[in-house]
Design a protein around this nucleic acid. Structure first.
Lengths: 233, 233
DNA sequence: AGAGAAATTATAAGATCGTATAGCAAGAAA
DNA sequence: TTTCTTGCTATACGATCTTATAATTTCTCT
């Protein structure tokens, strides 16, 4: 899980440097000076290092030098694998997007197979520490800034957003069908629910004192209650 | 109006440079080489230049050199008036926040004095080209990024957000009282509505094809309808 | 064991960044 | 007209950035 690996490795800086030191020691003993890895693996390592840098320094963390240092490699390796740094960031965005949607879908699939429980699982997971996290938003804000100015990033975003909305759409449709209420425009309604989730995430991360995650869950349930009562019919 | 001035002056670059050229010509004729302005005025000019730079280049626009060039002054002037650049950015944030809330409140006050019309005016204005604008979000996203990493910016944000929520709270309270329905926790409910607005703003700016501003208005009205039907009681 | 492919390092060049400092000059006051 | 305050310019320094290039090293494959 991409997201988890980011969180886990955030605190493993020490271990990371130990590894490097060991590597340098082993040079003196005639061992390998660096590890040669499969491009696929290295690309992912660099992508995750980029995410860690962004978590730590925000926009300032988007830098070839910092990311290379974080990954424990030299700068040239980023050029070698990604050409320009924007490509690395876009790749990191894809990793993160996929990770988040995967976390959510896994939770939904593990819930009891009723539309109510599935949607509720989706909501609760959205407000769990795994996603409802300042650091996660910090990464996302950087991405938003890039999306607005980079066609490459924008293209990725459109796909990810579409997938997300379609997922929400399915959850809402199933609920409406099961409970027998009607929704005028399901796609639009899913967009609104998505917006509510994102807006609460944003508000809480920027101002954690304003409400508690559980209250966020409640507000989403209230929204669903409005849906039940036909406000979106 | 801060926001308007940003929008207006975005297209007045040519005029701005003409002024500079004239100023330089006049040097040859022995006239003033630069204008000496009151600190208050100059600070505002620099703040608005900063906003224009952010609109144009996003995070990359936050640069002493670029902002000074945009304002038609030398770099040292920013140091002189603000000390460090973060202070200028925070000032620009305050300008912009005040401008947005002012636009909204002016619209509300100009609406017919019924709770329904006032809230609806607030909603429609939120989705008008003045605020529902890619460039405006672009500026905001940069601010969000800074808020997450700067206590100074965070302090400003807490105040602005609080004002905003209190405003929404008042609009909702008046509506509930007038129509005789109940709201469990008005502050929380106002937070949810604010989140919905921000979320829709964000979604549309990142993906303008996903829905039309009028549809955003409708989704907000639907949310209010859910409120009426007691979903937040 | 040895050769070849390519992953990785090493190094440099050129921009741009933020900030500090010293001196100039605009415009009000006398 | 002359003085004085201070807004403003001019310039420099050191750090950091991106990107390009060539040399080196690892590791697989035969």
């Amino acid at each position: 899980m991409a997201l988890l690996s980011v969180d886990h490795e955030r605190w493993s800086g020490a271990r990371r440097w130990e590894v490097m030191l060991l590597a340098k020691q082993s040079v003196a003993k005639g061992r390998a000076r660096f590890r040669r890895e499969a491009p696929e693996d290295r690309r992912r390592q660099l992508g995750e290092a980029a995410l860690r840098c962004i978590v730590k320094h925000g926009n300032a963390g988007v830098s070839v030098r910092q990311i290379a240092a974080e990954a424990g490699v030299t700068q040239g390796l980023i050029t070698h694998h990604f050409g320009e740094i924007n490509e690395l960031v876009a790749y990191a965005f894809d990793i993160m997007s996929a990770g988040i949607l995967q976390v959510l879908m896994k939770g939904v699939e593990e819930a009891e197979p009723t539309p109510q429980k599935r949607l509720d699982s989706f909501i609760e997971l959205s407000f769990s520490p795994l996603l409802f996290d300042r650091d996660v938003l910090g990464v996302w804000v950087v991405f938003w800034g890039l999306i607005l100015h980079s066609p490459r990033m924008s293209a990725s975003q459109q796909g990810e957003y579409s997938d997300y909305v379609v997922t929400v759409e399915g959850l809402l449709r199933d609920l409406a069908q099961d409970e027998g209420f009607s929704i005028g425009d399901i796609r639009l309604t899913a967009i609104a629910f998505t917006a509510l989730l994102d807006g609460l995430w944003l508000a809480w991360c920027l101002n954690p004192a304003s409400f508690k995650p559980e209250q966020g869950v409640q507000l989403c349930r209230n929204w669903v209650e409005g849906l039940r009562r036909g406000a979106y019919g």
